[in-house]
Design a binder for these strands. Structure first.
Lengths: 178, 178
DNA sequence: ACCTGAACACCGTTCAAGT
DNA sequence: ACCTGAACACCGTTCAAGT
C-alpha cells in the first residue's frame, strides 16, 4: 500500500493521491484501506517519514560539528528536491513525524551540542534550520511568486544559493549570543 | 463577500472556509458566489493579498537599506503572526499574488539594489527572505514537530529568534560573493 | 485478519433558467 | 448583473456484514 501510494504520487502528483484512487490501483474497495492505516494523514506521515530515511548522516571522520550540520542539511535539501512532489506536504505537516524524523532531529541536536549550542537556543536553531531547508526546497520546486519568466528546474545555482544561506545561518547560530 | 470570508476564517479557522459555508453565511446559494469570484483559489488570493496591505514600509528617514529590509521583513512577520490562521495558506501559495505582494516585492528589490545587490542575486535574496519569513511564521504559529512539551503562543523570544536569523541572512546577502 | 456494499456527510463547480 | 435549482463528479470515512 505504501509503495502503491508512492507510485501514484510519482506518476500523477499530489492531487491524485486520493484514498479512492489508491484503492482502485490496488483493485480493492476504498474502505478496505482502513484495515491497514488509520486515515489519510497517517498514510501521508508514513510516506514522509520514509523519505527521510534517504538523508545521509554526516561522514564520521568530520570533526567539525558545524561542517556536519552543513552536510546534514544539504543532504536533507537534496532528498527533498528528489521528492519535489512531496515538498508541499512537508510544508503542510511542518516536517515529518516518525522514527526517521526523530533520528534526524537527534543527530542535529547532538551536532549543535558539540558546537556549543544547547537548551532553548538549540531547539530554536533546529527550527530555523528546518524552516530554511524545507522552505527553500518549496521555492526551488515551484515557480516563485514574482514569476518573471522561465521556469527552471532546480539548478546548480539554486543549490549554491541554498548553501550560502545555510552558511550564513550556521555562522550566526554558533556565534556568541548578544 | 471578502469580509464574510475573513470573519469565517477568524471565527472558525481554515477548514471552515468552504464555499458552501460562505454561501450560507451570506444567506445565498453556493453557486451564487461564482458571480463574484472566479473560484476558491482566486478568493484566497484576494484575502492573502489584502492582508499584505498591513505591512508597513520602512520609515523614510532610514538611510541604511539593510536596516530598511530588516524593518520591512519584521513588519511582514508581525502581520503574518497577526493572521496566524492564514499562514498555512501563504505557505501553500508560496506568498501572495496581487497588487500588495507586487508592491512589497518592488520595495524589497529597491532596498536590495541600494545595498548593492542586483540581478539574479537580488531575486535569490528576495526568495530567501520570503521563505525565511513565511516559514518562521508557520513554525511560530503551530507546534514544532519535535513537540516536546508546552505549546507556547508566539513569544517575544520567538520574535527575537526571528530577528537574529534575519540579521544573519542580511549580513550574508550583502557580503561580497565568494 | 481483511475485505465488500452501502451509506453518510461533505466538497468545488457548472449549467440552464429566472429576475 | 445577480441569483436559484438541480445536478455532476468527486472527497474521506464509518458501519454492518461477510470470509
Amino acid at each position: 500500500m505504501l509503495v502503491a501510494a508512492r507510485e501514484l504520487l510519482a506518476e500523477r502528483g499530489l492531487e491524485a493521491l486520493t484514498m479512492r484512487a489508491l484503492a482502485e490501483r490496488l483493485q480493492v474497495s476504498p474502505n478496505a484501506l482502513y484495515s491497514h492505516v488509520a486515515g489519510k494523514t497517517a498514510l501521508i506521515d508514513e510516506i514522509l517519514d520514509g523519505v527521510l530515511a534517504e538523508v545521509e548522516a554526516p561522514p564520521a571522520d568530520l570533526e567539525d560539528p558545524v561542517a556536519g550540520l552543513d552536510s546534514l542539511m544539504a543532504s536533507t535539501y537534496g532528498v527533498l528536491l528528489a521528492h519535489a512532489e512531496l515538498v508541499p506536504l512537508f510544508l503542510a505537516r511542518q516536517g515529518a513525524r516518525g522514527p526517521n524524523a526523530q533520528r534526524l532531529g537527534d543527530v542535529m541536536l547532538a551536532l549543535l551540542a558539540r558546537a556549543g549550542v544547547t537548551g532553548r537556543r538549540a531547539r530554536e536553531a533546529l527550527r530555523v534550520l528546518l524552516v530554511y531547508t524545507i522552505g527553500f526546497a518549496a521555492f526551488a520546486t515551484r515557480p516563485p511568486i514574482e514569476a518573471s519568466g522561465a521556469r527552471e528546474p532546480p539548478s546548480a545555482e539554486m543549490l549554491a544559493n541554498f548553501d550560502s544561506g545555510l552558511g550564513w545561518l550556521l555562522t550566526g547560530i554558533v556565534s556568541p549570543s548578544r
